[in-house]
Design a protein around this nucleic acid. Structure first.
Length: 302
DNA sequence: TTCCAGGAAATGG
DNA sequence: CCATTTCATGGA
């Protein structure tokens, strides 16, 4: 067993763990102490599984300390993994300072202190966002959690049984009917076909990490069920393209109502215009905007 | 009941 | 090439 504590002084701008893990970027973490997804985060801890040197997956739990900072616990030395996946080196105050001087953007940063971008692994992120189309955040998390629990390999940790994200081979072998039974709907054949591409070695999403941003987004659309928007989510949340600005329904509405000058005749052109408008941390700004606009309180207060 | 959700693929022009 | 239609499904 490995444990560690991360001092708040080493997390510039701090972290709100519940906000970061339940804001709709990541679907690979689960609250360990309850069935609810968006419940009371006080004292909560989250777990995920991580690949470990080609062997069995390992389990990682992270908890936010009341005094700030994080505690983690894992069956692998995970200090670097925690820092990288939660992007603890990002300076949130500097990012907020560099953001455009727009009231809605300032309000978003001010209202959601400690919200960080995450850096998840490419393959599970790809599958999760194939599942995300025409779905609410809480239901996407439910679908991904169900995939893990029903067909993911069990991993015993600290006396409890967890489940790793199912491998490409397992998802491909599960078949369309099984995935429909698990609630994926019309996305089931997309997931099967994409998983098969990866299992067969035809392509792997992490290959896109070495490309120029717009080339990476285009390349990712070769996977079944992946259009430009889903590809952008993989770019932003798993491949380190901080300039990516996924144009979902909420951001499209924001463009129409607040940034009409960024509206173009194609996804690529609109994305490019909004990216330039949102500045060097466009992806971070987008993540704050998305969460801010999506919350009912924001809609009522604005 | 109807509408909607971090859209994409298939089809029609 | 661009515009329209179809595709599941639970919650409000």
């Amino acid at each position: 067993m490995h444990t560690g504590r991360i001092d708040p002084a080493t997390i510039p701008g701090g972290i709100d763990l519940g906000l970061t893990l339940e804001s709709g970027q990541s679907y690979l973490w689960t609250r360990a102490d309850g069935d609810g997804y968006a419940g009371d985060p006080d004292g909560s801890q989250w777990y995920t599984t991580v690949e470990w040197r080609g062997g069995d997956p390992r389990v990682l739990r992270v908890r936010e300390r009341p005094a700030g900072g994080l505690d983690w616990r894992a069956n692998a030395p995970a200090a670097d993994i925690v820092r990288e996946r939660l992007r603890l080196d990002d300076d949130l105050d500097a990012i907020a300072e560099r953001a455009p001087d727009e009231s809605v953007i300032a309000a978003a940063f001010d209202a959601h202190r400690g919200l960080r971008l995450i850096d998840d692994p490419a393959y599970p992120t790809l599958i999760a966002f194939i599942c995300s189309t025409q779905m609410r955040v809480s239901r996407i998390h439910g679908m991904v959690t169900r995939l893990r629990r029903e067909i993911g390999d069990p991993v015993v940790f600290d006396g409890d049984t967890f489940h790793a994200f199912p491998t490409p081979e397992t998802l491909a072998a599960a078949g369309e009917d099984r995935l429909r039974d698990l609630g994926l709907g019309y996305r089931a054949p997309y997931v099967v076909d994409t998983a098969r591409m990866i299992a067969d070695g035809a392509a792997h999403p992490r290959t896109a990490a070495g490309m120029a941003y717009e080339d990476a987004r285009e390349w990712l659309t070769r996977f079944v069920g992946v259009g430009e928007k889903v590809a952008d989510c993989v770019c932003l949340f798993a491949l380190g393209f901080d300039e990516s600005v996924p144009l979902d329904t909420w951001i499209q509405t924001a463009i129409a109502e607040r940034f009409p000058d960024c509206d173009r005749d194609s996804y690529a052109a609109t994305s490019r215009a909004l990216r330039e408008r949102l500045g060097p941390d466009a992806g971070y700004v987008q993540t704050y905007l998305f969460y801010h606009l999506r919350t009912a309180e924001a809609a009522a207060a604005d």
